[in-house]
Design a binder for these strands. Structure first.
Lengths: 354, 354
DNA sequence: TATTGGTGCGGGAACGTTCCCGCACAAGAC
DNA sequence: GTCTTGTGCGGGAACGTTCCCGCACCAATA
């Protein structure tokens, strides 16, 4: 360190970073005074304050964040992890919903003064142990995952979905699955659908479990047949195939007249599948997709989507977590985020969008 | 643990977190010894080592990461920022390329023992000042952005594209734009294209600037007309509209016979646009998209894509940055990542995929 | 002139680790 | 029995901040 490698080409000083004491010495002040000057605290004469600031600026002083954190007892860092299969640790980002959830989480956190650390799905607790996280946001945990237990046991505040309700130091936000299903199905029914089919992924995420239950209840309440298909895998391929099995009815059998796809799927691909099987959208088939995919706006016809409002979810989540972190709020708290149906031509029988 | 809160409900002891000295006192050892025992260092008798470990386990000791970082002089934290307009700070995640780049960056970093912090685009330097970042990865910086200068001035190692070449403490990775353009255009020409049109975003990202230059050179070298359209805005809407202006030729004018879309666009939407204007793909129009969008596999016909291989870019990037951080490697270093053309039916004239 | 009250600044501990030492003791060599 | 070498453990400084104090000084009051 002391002796920079001799020959070199563009040898830079190994920059033994300037500390607070260096500034103090240079300015002929104590570190206490300089610290107060830079932070705008303490009782200092304007002259001294300015001298300290000027010296710090001149020397290129940049405070050591780690030391601050140690002193402050927290690092203003929150972890962000998406529950899910350990074999698909990072692919969640490719889903528009999680892309927006992730971005919104980072943005909101930053506004509140916290930075977001990306963590891998699955319970790799060991990996995080040398990260100083003030709290962790667990998005869409799968049932049976132990991450949350581990974190709470470690005394780290957690923010997740309703499954953590009542747990100490945990708060939650959830998407209103029941309202979502009702909103979408009511809309389809108003538009004349009598045989709407639900396509839903076969995973243990709380939201999807609730969607199935809500669908069952709705069908019973409205006296319509309970038509549903479960998709074993995620991704466009499996979902589109599932849609095809729904549309490919044997001759003479009753055809579905509406589709509510809750699995993440590309809007144009779903439309394409419908056309392949001879359906005209929206005349033969009303289509509603639960999706944040922006391509829904640009298809022909544009596709009605049900947004889970990831930005709202993220905001509520960060807000709750920060409340716990800052004010030590300890009462369990939660938010239920309503969904938003964006009606477009694909689900309006008359072809007329309000 | 000592006295569990009596009546229970959800009152937790405010948990005055157990420190190393607490464990030491409890075990009748010194903190030095306990530290050595837990870290597997030092010369200790097996008995003492086990006693320390057992006590720590029993007391639920979790080392304070911040203190470690202060001692170690680094926090094992890497910042990750995507250059771009400050008005679209986070939307980059919705692009498949950046989604995968981001995921791969996080994954690779974690393997190397570093965690990744999501940073907002734009030069909000102030925001990061109380983050202890060991280094920063700047993906696709726009020309004229000062983030990199600021970081280097602050002595923080930076990893970015070739624009940082030669800068001290910086290393780079770049996508082989010239090779990419050549590969795609050669392929289209082999398939019989004589009037291929390039659609490229009108932004100052290094890659896109190089693409335009490479296209110009290629056209000149092969004696084909230099047909190109610049898209002012990003997003599916503008790109599709640009494609439409290309396809909407006045009667009698020569029609394009191939499309090379470098802007991020949804494959099915591009195909749909082609059909709207009466082109049969691939018979009337060969289509190649520079995209990581997985929907390209599921369209009819499947769309040929040119992958920029975000995972490879991320790996090279993290590797270089870590090399600087760990071994203080100071010689400028860089990697040029070759692209990969995935030929599918949309660009094969005969309709036959090899 | 003594007493009070306020202002301006510095000394030093603390945050929780790691790691360089040094000390005590035991065992082997002569 | 002394001298060396080695083993097992602990004391204490250091990482770079912030913040609680206390001390000196000055002005105003009695």
């Amino acid at each position: 360190m002391t002796e920079a490698s001799g020959h070199e080409g563009q040898p830079s000083p190994p920059t033994p970073r300037v500390r607070l004491v260096d500034v103090a010495r240079e300015a002929g002040l104590s570190k206490t005074t300089v610290s107060a000057a830079l932070n705008g605290t303490g009782r200092l004469s304007p002259a001294v304050r300015e001298r300290a600031r000027e010296t710090a600026r001149r020397m290129g002083y940049r405070p050591n964040a780690t030391a601050r954190h140690l002193r402050a007892g927290r690092a203003r860092l929150i972890g962000y992890v998406v529950g899910g299969a350990p074999d698909a640790l990072w692919t969640y980002l490719e889903s528009p919903y999680f892309a927006r959830l992730t971005g919104a989480t980072a943005a909101t956190s930053l506004l509140r003064g916290y930075a977001v650390v990306l963590l891998p799905a699955g319970t790799l607790q060991g990996e995080w142990s040398d990260l100083s996280l003030d709290g962790v946001i667990v998005a869409d945990p799968v049932a049976g995952d132990t991450v949350i237990e581990d974190l709470l046991a470690a005394g780290i505040p957690v923010f997740s979905d309703r499954s953590v309700e009542g747990r100490f130091g945990a708060s939650w936000v959830d998407v209103d699955a029941e309202g979502a299903v009702a909103e979408a199905l009511d809309h389809l029914r108003e538009q004349g659908a009598r045989r709407p089919v639900l396509v839903v992924p076969d995973i243990a995420t709380r939201f999807h479990v609730e969607v199935e239950a809500a669908h069952r209840a709705w069908c019973a309440a409205h006296g319509l047949p309970e038509l549903a298909v479960r998709v074993a895998e995620s991704g466009n391929g499996p979902v589109v195939r599932a849609v095809e099995t729904v549309l490919d009815t044997p001759d003479g059998a009753e055809r579905p007249d509406a589709l509510l796809v809750v699995a993440e799927a590309s809007p144009p691909l779903v439309l394409e599948a419908a056309r392949r099987y001879g359906y005209e959208v929206p005349d033969d088939l009303l289509v509603v997709l639960v999706s944040e995919d922006a391509t829904a706006l640009y298809t022909d016809p544009p596709v009605t989507t049900l947004s889970l409002r990831p930005e709202a979810v993220a905001e509520a989540g960060v807000e709750h977590l920060v409340a716990v972190l800052e004010h030590g709020r300890r009462e369990p708290a939660g938010t239920l985020v309503p969904t938003r149906l964006d009606v477009r031509a694909s689900s309006v029988r008359s072809g007329r969008v309000e």
